[in-house]
Amino acid sequence: MPAQTLTATLHVNGREHALPDLDPRTTLLDALRESLGLTGTKKGCGLGHCGACTVLADGRRILSCMALAALYEGREITTIEGLAPEGGAARPHPLQQAFVERDAFQCGYCTPGQIMSAAGLIDEGRTGSPEEIREFMSGNLCRCGAYANIVAAVADVARTPLVPGAREPEQGRS
């Protein structure tokens, strides 16, 4: 039994959602998935280690499993469902397109988190080299091991040179 219930309003993908009877323990991740039906954001470890739950809050990448929903009132949350301007498969976001073109996933479970994290990364400007992309994407695990193609997809969108003769992502540090 919750010790208390709250009323909170979340702003997600440009829309307002009232959450009546919110248990204060509810994470932003669970609110997105269970209350709002936005199941694109994935629950991996639930402890901030894997990055599958990455979303943007006011444009910056965060871990929705480490966030209490009630403490994110008034923040603009963007999930994978809201990344493409028009939404849907018809006009994917450039990162979504690059992940398809580079075959940057196998099972796909980590992919929404990878893409949201990459969106935050590109905005941070830490994409000067494949090595830098790897370091600043280290909060997103891929147990299928698609890292080389994930780095390539991010580099495509960020216009990061994969300089011939320099260290290619496939030969990068593990």
């Binding site: 901030g48 965060i62 871990l63 480490m66 994290s117 935050g120 600043f136 909060g139």
Partner: peptide
Amino acid sequence: SASAQVRNM
């Protein structure tokens, strides 16, 4: 320290 997401929070 940590990851980029954690450092943002």
